[in-house]
């Protein structure tokens, strides 16, 4: 595992090859509300990309699009050379087995033990015998340091362990890409570092492309090869951790340094409070 103080390592050698994920002019609309506006983004194979942005900026929607959870209103999302927006449901199911998702809460099945949780996708998608599945499950749990807790249920373990167990399940089918939806949410600083190290370690040892949403700036700078900042459904900045830290853009500066004064808060204050109070229709 890399030391927590080390700067992010360089991208793997084959990172210049065809991007593993390409979002081309992607727009997503819910009813009349446009959440993503004509976004274009490439994610290189083996890259660790961190997506930043305030609440409602469109990060989760973009992650859901890349993870084939939902379809774009227009544009293309090309993963491994195939446009997932035009796939049939059966093709999408097949495609989903090449990806893993770690949800914010871990999303473990509460009625199952950790081992059963990890075994579930393997039982569903392979014809392996139980003995082989048990071996694979132990290997996956060992990767996240939970082999001794295999027989525990999710209710019996801590929040950080749940995230790691969720990660073991996401790794069950040896995915090429893992999406992390706020992996550090609700964790203490030590657990955050543990999860970060695990993400970096898996990326470096297994070459898994990593796409992360986080609000933890320390975590983001520790993990990322590259960061992108979303605001109101558009990319407003992209760059390496150093480029983002030293950016002169007022919006990036405010977000990265967590300042209360800046364009993000100015925009919020623009709403005329008095008009709002006096308007009975609102």
């Amino acid at each position: 595992m890399p030391d927590e103080t080390t700067a992010p390592s360089a991208l793997p050698a084959d990172a210049d090859a065809e991007p593993i994920i390409r979002c081309i002019n992607v727009t997503k609309q819910f009813g009349s509300q446009k959440v993503l506006h004509d976004l274009t983004l490439n994610v290189k194979r083996g890259e660790r990309l961190v997506m930043l942005g305030g609440s409602g900026a469109g990060k989760s929607t973009l992650l859901n699009l890349m993870a084939a959870e939902t379809r774009a209103t227009s544009g293309q999302v090309i993963v491994n050379g195939r446009n997932i927006c035009s796939m049939s449901d059966a093709e999408l199911d097949k495609h989903r087995t090449t990806m893993g998702v770690l949800f914010q809460s871990g999303a473990l099945f509460q009625s199952m033990t950790l081992a059963e949780n990890v075994a579930l996708p393997i039982r569903e998608h392979t014809d392996l015998v139980d003995r082989t599945i048990d071996t694979i499950v132990k290997m996956k749990l060992e990767l996240v340091g939970l082999r001794e807790h295999a027989d525990k249920k999710p209710a019996e373990i801590s929040g950080g362990m749940k995230k790691r167990a969720g990660l073991a399940r996401a790794l069950a089918l040896d995915p090429q890409i893992i999406f992390y939806d706020e992996p550090s949410a609700g964790l203490d600083p030590v657990s955050v570092t543990e999860v970060d190290q695990l993400m970096i370690g898996l990326n470096e040892t297994l070459g898994v492309t990593t796409v992360v949403i986080t609000h933890e700036m320390t975590s983001a700078f520790r993990i990322a090869h590259r960061l992108v900042l979303l605001d109101q459904g558009k990319f407003v900045a992209a760059g390496s951790p150093d480029e983002m830290k030293n950016s002169d853009d007022p919006l990036v500066h405010q977000f990265v340094h967590g300042l209360t004064a800046g364009p993000l808060t100015d925009r919020r204050d623009d709403c005329d409070y008095l008009t709002d109070l006096l308007n009975p229709q609102r």
Partner: peptide, 13 residues
């Protein structure tokens, strides 16, 4: 609520 249904779909189950 616990995102377990989403997790099932993400594993193509």
């Amino acid at each position: 609520v616990g995102e377990e249904l989403k997790a099932l779909r993400s594993h193509a189950i």
